[in-house]
Design a protein around this nucleic acid. Structure first.
Length: 644
RNA sequence: GCCGACGUAGCUCAGCGGUAGAGCAACUGAUUCGUAAUCAGUAGGUCCUCGGUUCAAGUCCGAGCGUCGGCACCA
């Protein structure tokens, strides 16, 4: 006897266990057709599973967004069946649903390539059209292992061996094909629908461990209908359209070349953008009690040994040997040990704390070749780094203060929304468990004091301390981890930093490592993609182009350009003998925010036609007024008069 | 670093054993034109590098370098 409560509040009672299918039919034929799975007391299960106790039950149909996970998981099974049918001898491993799609990892030599997609996709569509029911079977552990080993599926057998002893081993059958799977699945392969597409292949280590064999992964995407698939593909096209590597070439910002892999050649306009951000941030830091410092690029290895970086990251440091001196220098991969040197240079008093040392620190890291990506991941980069030396009691106040600064900077740069993650102790770490307990507790309390809501990111802390990670959301919904705040009790100990407390005793300061942008290079890449190249006027490296309609206006155009320059705007003049259409097009493609178009009319009247990037209309204004407005808009946010 | 794909003119790409191509950009000339491509002409290439196969190699093979997509990494 079970009582089943439905979403509308009604309760149905059954004397015997009832399956989802039965229940749906009992409620109505429409639901019986539409349901693909159900949620029993919060757990998604197959419609074929029986309910034998009191429960709250809700059905999932194609209308529910959560059906996407089921479609994608089922699609992964369909993919695996198709692949095994077409490529006998291929071993299956795992194939989960992921954000926007699914993948399946196969052991197959040679690895699959996109050329294999058309036949695989065609086979998948056959399997979907066949509407084979998914049938769940419970197996004995030993039998299941024997079954997969007999089939030559050693990965599957391994998976079963690693499952906890009490885990129920379930297999799902679809037509003639069967796979180890926890489920749940929809009713038939037909429920996958037709809105799916294989996207790309990739190598992926078995169980994500680089010591294991590499498997051949096939990624796909799957949606409820063609319209959703199309809009997802459109989103991908948008990502490509915004690619900072393409846009920065159009804007002539920088380039990369083989002779300096992972280092940026900043062109004049790119460097202008860089400096706009740097000066803005420098003013914000100056105003917030930071003192800027500059520390060496090349530092003897002994310092890195003391700090612990040599042991953990030595393989990723660039080193230099000097011919006459017997020493190894390392290009600094980060700034904290150097900042500690400034702190420890003399005896410090508690009165000096918190001491905030900031540096736009140029760092080099020998990143693995496969990690490099445009200017987002490079080997030479500059951090907006700072270290706050303070007492344990000051951590909370400093956290609040930092959060305020960070929010302001993100807002000014066009990222009003960000999330916070709390990354706690990693497996490999420096410092005792007691130290970590204290550091994590201090950071948690600081978050509470600053009213910061965070999600946990387990095991992802730095080797010397727990950290907060600040994750930006961009205009098309992507996440970018940029800022960080790390609590460090370990480095002051290792590098012997201390101060004299009020009572005359010597104490260890706490170090807070913090950054807002992370790396300038990466952040500028993110910024370009966020704005798709259409930077706000104050950041645009080339703000204004004055362009003529007829050559009679050349002299007047020069006057206009000088007026812009005098107002501090970055301006170029375009007197080329081209049609205005062509000039508008070219400067638009270079993402120049403002075109001041002048012809005979403007020259005579002393006006300019202001054409904003992407706008169809222009506004004709007196020159002085136009320049005044643009200059006001081009002012850095921190230099603008407070809003009235 | 690992797996795969790719590397041809400034950019985007075609050519896949037999005399290096196109569009755009550049340059020259004509055109003076009102808001996203005016017309004509000219010039431009160690086909990533090194080695091999071949009468003959962008083209086939090998190694290296780099880029791209994942994986792993990210102090």
């Amino acid at each position: 006897m079970s009582a089943i409560r439905l979403p509308d509040g009604s309760v149905r009672r059954f004397d015997a266990p009832v399956t989802g299918d039965d229940l749906a039919r009992a409620i109505g034929p429409g639901l019986a057709r539409a349901a693909v799975a159900m949620v029993v007391s919060g757990r998604v299960v197959d419609l074929s599973s029986a309910i034998d106790a009191d429960a709250e039950v809700r059905f999932i149909t194609r209308e529910d967004p959560e059906v996407l996970g089921l479609i994608r998981h089922d699609a992964a099974h369909v993919l695996a069946e198709a692949v095994q049918e077409l490529y006998p001898g291929t071993e299956v491993t795992i194939g989960p649903a992921i954000e926007n799609g699914f993948y399946y990892d196969f052991a197959h030599e040679p690895p699959f390539t996109p050329e294999d997609f058309p036949p695989i996709e065609a086979k998948m569509r056959e399997i979907v059209a066949a509407r084979a029911p998914f049938v769940r079977e419970v197996w004995e552990r030993a039998e299941a292992i024997a079954f997969f080993e007999a089939k030559g599926e050693k990965y599957k057998a391994d998976i079963i061996r690693d499952l906890p002893e009490d885990e129920t081993i379930t297999l799902y059958r679809q037509g003639g094909w069967v796979d180890l799977c926890r489920g749940p699945h929809m009713r038939t392969t037909g429920d996958v629908g037709t809105a799916f597409k294989l996207m790309r292949t990739a190598g992926a280590y078995w169980r994500g461990d680089h010591r294991n064999p590499m498997l051949s992964r096939i990624y796909g995407t799957a949606w409820r209908n063609q319209k959703e698939l199309d809009s997802y593909l459109a989103m991908l096209a948008e990502v490509e359209r915004r690619d900072h590597r393409r846009i920065s070439r159009e804007m002539d910002l920088f380039h990369l070349q083989d002779e300096a892999v992972g280092s940026v050649f900043w062109h004049p306009l790119g460097w202008r953008l860089y400096r706009a951000i740097e000066s803005y941030l420098r003013r914000r830091l100056d105003a917030d009690g930071y003192q800027e410092v500059r520390t060496p690029q090349l530092v003897d290895r002994s310092l890195w040994e003391k700090s612990g970086h040599w042991e953990k990251f030595g393989a990723h440091m660039f080193t230099a040997e000097v011919a006459d001196e017997h020493r190894t220098l390392a290009l600094k991969p980060m700034n904290c040990p150097c900042h500690v040197q400034i702190f420890t240079r003399r005896l410090r008093s508690y009165r000096e704390l918190p001491l905030r040392l900031a540096e736009f620190g140029s760092c080099h890291r020998y990143e693995p070749s496969g990690a490099l990506h445009g200017i987002m991941r490079v080997r030479a980069f500059t951090q907006d780094d700072a270290h706050i030396f303070c007492t344990e009691e000051q951590i909370a106040a400093e956290t609040i203060r930092f959060m305020a600064l960070l929010s302001t900077v993100y807002r000014d740069l066009g990222f009003p929304a960000f999330e916070v993650k709390f990354a706690d102790r990693p497996d490999v770490r420096a410092g005792s468990d007691e130290t970590w307990d204290r550091a994590e507790a201090a950071l948690r309390e600081a978050c509470a004091a600053a009213s910061v809501a965070y999600t946990l990111n387990p095991g992802e802390g730095a080797f010397y301390g727990p950290k907060l990670e600040f994750v930006l959301k961009d205009a098309i919904g992507r996440d970018w981890q940029c800022g960080t705040l790390q609590v460090d009790f370990v480095m002051p100990e290792r590098l012997d930093a201390e101060y004299v407390a009020e009572d005359g005793t010597r104490r260890r300061p706490v170090m807070l490592h913090r950054a807002i942008l992370g790396s300038f290079e990466r952040f500028i890449g993110i910024l370009i993609e966020q704005y798709a190249g259409r930077l706000p006027l104050w950041l645009a490296p080339l703000q204004v182009v004055v362009t003529t309609i007829v050559s009679d206006a050349d002299a007047y155009a020069a006057l206009v350009a000088r007026a812009c320059e005098a107002a501090g705007l970055s301006v170029q003049q375009d007197n080329r003998n081209e049609k205005i259409n062509a000039k508008v097009r070219e400067w638009s493609l270079r993402h120049v925010p403002v075109l001041l178009v002048v012809g005979r009319r403007e020259a005579e009247a002393g006006t300019v036609a202001v054409r904003r990037l992407g706008a169809a209309e222009q506004e004709v204004l007196p020159l002085g007024k136009a320049v005044g407005r643009l200059a006001a808009e081009a002012r850095s946010p921190d230099l603008r008069p407070a809003a009235a």
